[in-house]
Design a protein around this nucleic acid. Structure first.
Lengths: 165, 165
DNA sequence: ACTCATGCTGTTATGTTATAACATATCGCC
DNA sequence: GGCGATATGTTATAACATAACAGCATGAGT
């Protein structure tokens, strides 16, 4: 992936929505969460979350790092990976395995397993909450699930040929 | 990941089973499939599938490549990636996104989306067929799914503390 | 104030995974 | 033989990720 090309990812579905509001809500959730868990909301961490919220799409770690570097907040891979890992651990950022990329969570504040729809044409990513029956069959097999990855790749409404594009 | 360390992955569940039989069945399925689709079952392709069947676990592309190299069948990454890509395209090998690894399909011959349970302790991987309701909600959102990734990470029966290990 | 432990950041170096691009070989077909 | 199609061989590099250690800030305990 060329790091000058971002991987697009509208959240909460492929429709339009109010970025300003969801960004503020996520930041507020992050602050509340850090206070509650006695975690440090450091400049690098805060800025990484903001970058993902502003981009409003899935970004690779090196994309995030490039933006940090522009602002003098760190230029070496571990800086970005550490901050991303912090948010992933807190559940406010999700990693998209198929894209090796990261997105701010669209449902901050609620514990959930996320599921993603990834458009192979425009690259945008939509998050939904997951309610799969998978846990049931895994439970029958005696497997104790800790985390789930659910990602669908295909065509989003705008990119289906003949759609109202 | 150190390429001398293989990622374990028993298929068709975490129980024991007859490797010899499932290996022969998979190879037969591969031959039938290639004949039906007029695809070439070349030495490299055949050997790559055999390597995955013999390993009977998830292997990284460079693990597969190392085994090919031992046998003089190719030593450069594209050789392994091309053969793996071929089988993934045919549905006889699945890629485990969380592990950046590849496993021979446990249900060759049937079209299916696979789901995996990955043990974070012993590294073994079990495949089940997927019947999620995810397609439904995606369909409601107007998203046309082409491929699904469903991976659960956690503890397999043998690795759950207090299990009959 | 001193010292220590902890947690975060800065940096070097390297490890791991993956692909673009082009050269060469093989095979069936006309 | 010449051609197109398919596959492999090879070089080089891109893209993603982490180990390991140094330095610094903060806060607790004395």
């Amino acid at each position: 992936m060329n790091s000058t090309k971002a991987t697009g990812a509208s959240l909460t579905g492929f429709g339009a929505h109010d970025h300003t509001r969801c960004r503020a809500a996520s930041l507020a959730a992050a602050e509340a969460l850090c206070a509650a868990r006695k975690l440090q909301l450091t400049p690098v961490r805060k800025r990484v979350l903001e970058i993902l919220l502003e981009a409003h799409e899935a970004l690779g770690a090196y994309d995030v790092l490039a933006r940090l570097a522009e602002e003098g907040l760190g230029s070496k891979p571990p800086v970005a990976y550490r901050a991303l890992g912090f948010w992933v651990a807190q559940g406010l950022v999700h990693r998209i395995e198929k894209l090796n990329a990261y997105v701010a969570c669209a449902h901050p504040g609620r514990a959930h397993d996320a599921a993603f729809m990834i458009c192979r044409d425009c690259g945008r990513v939509a998050e939904t909450e997951s309610h799969g029956p998978f846990g049931q069959s895994a439970g029958e097999a005696g497997f104790q699930i800790e985390t789930m990855v659910i990602e669908a790749e295909g065509l989003c409404p705008k990119c289906i040929p003949g759609a109202g594009l």
